[in-house]
Structures are given as C-alpha cells and as structure tokens.
Deep mutational scan, measured.
Amino acid sequence: MAEQVALSRTQVCGILREELFQGDAFHQSDTHIFIIMGASGDLAKKKIYPTIWWLFRDGLLPENTFIVGYARSRLTVADIRKQSEPFFKATPEEKLKLEDFFARNSYVAGQYDDAASYQRLNSHMNALHLGSQANRLFYLALPPTVYEAVTKNIHESCMSQIGWNRIIVEKPFGRDLQSSDRLSNHISSLFREDQIYRIDHYLGKEMVQNLMVLRFANRIFGPIWNRDNIACVILTFKEPFGTEGRGGYFDEFGIIRDVMQNHLLQMLCLVAMEKPASTNSDDVRDEKVKVLKCISEVQANNVVLGQYVGNPDGEGEATKGYLDDPTVPRGSTTATFAAVVLYVENERWDGVPFILRCGKALNERKAEVRLQFHDVAGDIFHQQCKRNELVIRVQPNEAVYTKMMTKKPGMFFNPEESELDLTYGNRYKNVKLPDAYERLILDVFCGSQMHFVRSDELREAWRIFTPLLHQIELEKPKPIPYIYGSRGPTEADELMKRVGFQYEGTYKWVNP
C-alpha cells in the first residue's frame, strides 16, 4: 500500500466541504435556525453545542446559521458558553472563530407547556436576519415526558411559513410498544414523516454505516452471507464503567431499553437485511423493517440478565456495585447486563442465532459485530482449526478484520490463527472521521433520513421486546451478580454456547 501524504486539518475539512456542497440537498446560502429545546441540560452542553461548534469551526454548516437555545432556566448566552465550552476542545488559535460562533447564538427562556412562551420564541426567531423565511431545525434534547406539549406548541407557534421545518427526537422513544405508539401517533398528527428525525446516534458511527458497503459492494461476501456458512452472529456493546452516581436515570430504563432495543437491534438489521433497491432512505429502511418483521418476540429462556457488584480487589469506582450508587433505588432489580438470542425467521437466516450482548462495568470498552462461520467440513488438521470470524469493530479503534487459519512457519503443516486486517487509523491517516452527532446533524440539514429511525421500524423493535420488558417488570427477577471489570455473568457464556457459538479464547485482536 502506497504511503499517504499527511494533510493538514484545513485540507481534510476542505475535502469534506467539497463532498457536502456538491450535493443538491445542502442549501449552503439559505438562512437556517437550529433550535435546541432543553438548552440547559446535560445532553445540550456535552453533545449538541459542542457538535454545532465543530461543524461551524470546520465550515460545514450553511453560511447563515443561527443557534437558539430554549429552556425553562433563566440563562444568558454567557451562561450557555460557560457550561458548554469546556466540552468544545477549542484551541487558543480558534479564539476569534469561537467569538464568531457565540455571536450567532441567542437564548430564550420559557415554559414547555405555555403557548405564550412559544409565541415569544417565534418572535425572537423572526427578528433574526431573514428569520421569518429561514429553515428551522428543532432538536428535542428533553425528557420524553414533555415531548407531547413541546411538539404541539412548536407546531402551533414556531413553524417557518416559507422555509422547511424538521424536528429531531432523542431516544428513548417511549418505554414499550404502547407508549411508543402513543408518542408516534401524537407526533405524526403534527408533522409529516419526512419532517421527523428520530435519532439513534449509533447509526451515525462510521463502521455501522460501513456495514452496507461491506455487504453490498464486495462480491466475495454475497455468496457466504447466509445460514449455510454463518453459524452465529454476535452483536456486542461493552462499557468498562458503571453508573457513577447517575444511576437514578438509568434505573428508569435499564440496559435493554438503553442499548439493546435500539443500538444493537439497528446493527442487527444492517447485518441481516436484503440488498435495498438503492441507497435512498426509504429503500434502506424498507429492508430493515422486513428483517424486524421476521423476528419473533424474545423468549425468556433465551435471556440472561445481570447486575454488577463491587470488586473487592478493585480501586475507586470498581469497588462499588450498582446498588451502592446513592441515586439507585434500594434493592433495585434493574439489569445492567443483558444477553438475548433472537432468530430472523426467513430463508437466508433460518436457524442462525443472533446474540445481542450489552452491559456496564465490564472488562473493556468495545462495540462490534462478529460473524462466526461454520467449521470446515472434512477436517484434515486433527481438530487444530478454529472457526473463521469476520469482525466489524465499531469502537474504539474502528477496524474490519477476518480471523482465519494460516500455516505456522516451519517444517510442518501446523495451522495457527491469524488475521486479515483493515484498521482505519492506519489505512486512512488523512481522513477526519466525523463524530456520530456531527454526521447525523449534517444529515438533518441535508434532509437525508437514511440513518434515522422510521415509525414502522420503531414499532417493530418495541413489538419484539415489550413482552419481555413487561414480564421483567411484573416478576422482578433478581439479576445474576457479576463482578465489576469482569466479562459479565458466566451464564451468558453458557447461553451463547448452547445456541452454537464457540468461544476459543486463544486469539485476541490487537490494534496495530
């Protein structure tokens, strides 16, 4: 592979701008107003304001973009700056750019259920340069409990009458099928589907988006991507930290609602779906819905739930269990780990287990898709061969690698495990991989909904998990304890083995 010439960040961002501006969906010269509902909250200060700053800094926003914060707290732009700027990672050389960014910011205080507050917000936006005809993007960085009041008031008082209007809704989209349907029906009564952007930030990850290209742009994968060759698929999300004093919020939802029903299920769809007619948003989402419709409700015998306990040999936070978090209700049975087996009941995947695993306070930070292939028929190497695996590593250190057998150097035919490896950090030294939120917010500006969740996708996802969630809430089974920093409950490994996964433990990928 030829040595790549190092590029400056300015040059890299210039390439990104060229890609972005050559499309006809990006209205570079139009006025846009980006409204952050819930501007005083954690999500706004840690993710949304920093993301908008990065896009502005790199010249990736339309030229005439204004940012308006809205929340109940009586704040000023200076207050917003004070709480969000520490997350910007701005350099001293960017000081003038930073001043320009905050000059485009404003803030309006108001209630979430008060019509007069929204009329005041609308008047404020109209007073901005060309504000009355601007395109408006409303980001709901809010708890779902206020979605209905907020969307109703936005629709009645704050819509642009000339430009387009788009609304970005953060997960969780309800707690179960019934609450999700209620919320979807409410929002759909106010906005068209092409105006609604239900954001799952995992769909903005580079390697998640790469799944489609790997599958449908490489001839070698087509013939082997089926039940005849693939023994099982494992989708993993692991965090090495616990709730760390923020367990009160987590306890309301648990690990299945927080990660599995959305992030992991979306990745499953991209692995299992048929080739779409095109890369058009609805063509892709149509195929994802077909996959979900082929999955039956989760069966309790295919589920393992766990909850982390303190590690007596650990240090600091590792010595504390979930129930030691003062914000967690006493005696909570909320799971911090889950392993679930699903089956896609169609011709391509009949009988292939899709194993979804996620948890907190585990032994490493990792998100990946792992396809394990069947054993080689007619073994001539005296059971020395391990199964081939194709691994798409989402985070950290984005990579695609194939675990395969090669001859060990020497005189004899002794096979050993090795890999074919594409590590993004080595291959793409001159490429700026956008943060997931950067990519998705740019998608909203461009009107691309491919990486957002459609209402029928959402409904099918909740259909699969709601009976299990209701059973857990009714019966309150005690989750299996696992030690902070471990791989999780051993019962999860036993479940995976029972459905056909072979864990060798003899080879570990190392970032080159």
Rank of each mutant, 00 (worst) to 15 (best):
S179Q: 07
L7S: 15
F237P: 03
A78Q: 13
A134E: 14
A115D: 13
R57W: 02
F102P: 02
S117P: 14
N126V: 10
E94S: 07
R219A: 11
K205S: 01
D200A: 01
A71W: 05
I234G: 07
Q161N: 14
Y70C: 11
H129P: 15
G248T: 02
W164A: 06
A71R: 04
G59T: 04
F34E: 03
L75I: 13
R136A: 10
K89G: 12
G163R: 09
H186Q: 12
E94F: 05
R182F: 10
L16M: 15
L7P: 14
S189M: 13
W225Y: 06
P143T: 04
G222R: 11
R175F: 12
F101I: 03
I80W: 06
I220Y: 07
I33Q: 07
Y202F: 07
K46A: 01
V68D: 00
E85K: 07
G247A: 06
D42T: 00
R219L: 06
D79L: 06
T236K: 05
A231S: 13
A6K: 15
I230Q: 00
E170W: 04
R215T: 04
F26V: 14
L55C: 10
P172L: 04
R166T: 00
R175E: 12
F241Y: 15
G23K: 15
N229Y: 05
I255A: 06
L130E: 15
E19Q: 11
M37Q: 08
R72F: 03
V233Y: 02
L211A: 01
D194K: 11
L142W: 00
D176T: 04
S29Y: 15
H155G: 11
N153E: 13
R215K: 07
I52C: 08
L214Q: 10
A127I: 11
V108Q: 09
G41D: 02
Q209P: 04
P172H: 00
N229F: 05
V233L: 05
Q195T: 07
Y49C: 00
V150Q: 01
K95S: 11
V146Q: 14
S8G: 07
R198E: 04
R175S: 11
A103L: 14
P50K: 08
F173G: 00
I67N: 00
Q83T: 10
F221Q: 05
G110V: 02
L190S: 08
R198P: 01
Q11A: 15
N210W: 04
F221G: 00
H124Y: 11
Q83H: 13
A39W: 03
G245K: 09
N105E: 02
E148N: 08
F101T: 03
W53V: 02
T151I: 10
F216N: 01
N126T: 14
H27M: 12
N105F: 12
Q178S: 15
Q178H: 15
M37K: 02
Y118V: 07
Y147S: 00
E156V: 12
S84Y: 13
F34M: 12
R175G: 06
W53Y: 11
I48M: 06
N135P: 08
N218I: 02
S160A: 13
L142H: 03
R192I: 08
Q161A: 15
A134R: 13
M212Q: 03
F237Y: 00
S8F: 05
I255N: 00
N122P: 00
H27S: 11
S184I: 12
E156H: 14
A78T: 15
W164G: 08
Q195M: 10
S179C: 05
F221I: 08
R9C: 09
R17N: 15
K45V: 07
W54R: 08
A39R: 04
E252A: 10
N122L: 11
V233G: 03
K95G: 13
E85C: 08
P240F: 09
D100G: 10
D181N: 13
F102E: 03
W53S: 01
I167K: 00
E170P: 01
H32V: 08
D200W: 03
A231G: 08
E193T: 03
L61R: 01
I36Q: 04
Q111K: 14
D30Q: 13
T236M: 05
K47R: 08
K47I: 03
P92W: 08
S160C: 13
G254L: 03
I224S: 09
G222V: 08
L177E: 07
I154D: 05
S123M: 14
N105M: 11
R219S: 09
E252R: 10
F56A: 00
V77P: 10
G38M: 04
Q11S: 15
I230L: 10
M159N: 13
T151R: 00
G245Q: 08
E239Y: 00
F88W: 04
N210T: 08
E63T: 11
A103D: 15
D181S: 13
W164D: 07
G254T: 04
Q22H: 15
D58G: 06
K89C: 11
G242W: 03
S84D: 05
L190T: 10
T91R: 14
W225R: 02
R136L: 05
G41F: 03
I168Y: 01
P172E: 06
R120W: 11
L214S: 06
S180C: 06
L43R: 02
Y118Q: 05
A116R: 12
L60T: 02
D42S: 05
K46H: 05
R81V: 10
E193D: 02
H155D: 12
T51W: 03
